[in-house]
């Protein structure tokens, strides 16, 4: 058990190292032309370009650059922004609550919709209600996030507000610690934006997995014992069939925490995702690199945590 966790941890760290190497190669080695020139912008003076070159260590040999880079990463030093001279990690962490509100709320809504609907659908497998659910889920999955966001913005903000019901704001973020109700009001539409797409996926996973479990021998035995159907489903079949849902949930949470770029942009939320977009628009190299590595960190951590939880739930799984 402990051996497995240590192996997974080593594997996760290696994945992170690979990703950091890929980022280094992309920005320091494979860049067409001089990175310093590129990030200085069109109107930079020679002194500014030289300054950037020294600051990035671009005048050093490549292996020295690499060791500086990896050494800084290991000390959680992502450098300072070219634009406002602020510490990159501090900026990311300051914006994290926005993205975290979005991510955790979204995943909660996915699961809250998907598990009851999946159970409902699986119990009526092959019949009309099940087909309707499956078709609706597929339609939901087919919506790109930005289309959902744009349409929600139009209907629930613009049309509703024009009709005299200003229920939802057009965007922006209010900290939970400042005003929990306003926080909720501002988060509802962004949550719905992400919920439409994911709820369909999760419903299909929950339905499929539950159906598979219901066909297992032990469920047949439970039924043969004369247990009530509700008890068979909720006590015997549902808990073990949630494994793929938990896996997906963990992975998606990791992905969302790394930045929900489109949703943040549509709803004017200043989270980690919009930081990445802004950094590209301003050519802020340390911030771009910081957000990529930060996002990768969450995905790798989520992978690790999911695997460990699965082993705790079912010790038969081994690497």
């Amino acid at each position: 058990m402990i051996g497995y966790v240590l192996r997974r941890l080593a594997f996760g760290l290696m994945t992170l190292w690979f990703i950091s190497l890929a980022v280094f190669i992309l920005f320091y080695v494979a860049t067409p032309g001089d990175p310093a020139l590129m990030f200085a912008g069109e109107y930079a003076t020679y002194e500014q370009i030289d300054l950037i070159r020294t600051r990035l260590g671009l005048d050093q040999p490549l292996h020295v650059q690499y060791f500086t880079y990896i050494g800084n990463l290991l000390r959680f030093d992502f450098g300072t922004s070219f634009v406002n001279q602020e510490d990159v990690l501090a900026t990311i962490l300051r914006r994290l609550p926005v993205t975290a509100s979005l991510a955790f709320g979204t995943v909660a809504i996915w699961v809250a919709i998907a598990i009851p609907t999946g159970v409902f659908s699986a119990r009526r497998a092959g019949r009309l209600p099940d087909r309707l659910v499956t078709a609706t889920a597929l339609a939901g999955m087919s919506f790109p996030t930005f289309v959902v966001g744009t349409l929600l913005f139009y209907v629930l903000f613009f049309v509703l507000t024009n009709a005299g019901f200003p229920v939802f704001p057009s965007g922006g973020y209010v900290a939970f610690t400042r005003d929990p109700l306003e926080w909720l009001r501002h988060m509802l539409l962004p949550w719905m934006t992400l919920a439409v797409v994911g709820a369909g996926t999760y419903t299909r996973i929950a339905r499929g997995s539950l159906l598979e479990t219901l066909n297992q021998d032990y469920v047949r035995t439970a039924r043969a014992k004369g247990l009530r159907e509700n008890k068979v489903i909720y006590h015997h079949a549902l808990p073990p069939s949630m494994t793929p849902v938990i896996t997906m949930m963990g992975l998606d949470l990791g992905g969302l925490l790394g930045g929900t770029i489109i949703t943040e942009r549509i709803w004017g939320l200043n989270g980690v995702g919009s930081l990445a977009v802004q950094a590209v628009e301003t050519g802020d190299l340390p911030t771009i690199m910081g957000t990529v590595i930060f996002a990768a960190f969450f995905v790798v951590a989520a992978n690790l945590i999911v695997d460990v939880i699965q082993v705790l739930r079912n010790p038969q799984i081994t690497l």
């Binding site: 994945t15 494979a30 992905g255 790394g258 770029i261 590209v280 990768a296």
Partner: peptide, 17 residues
């Protein structure tokens, strides 16, 4: 490694270069 990289963030990085 690919699963560890977020698509949009990576695309942003690539496009910036």
């Amino acid at each position: 490694m690919v699963l560890g990289l977020p698509l949009l963030v990576t695309a942003i990085a690539l496009v910036s270069v």
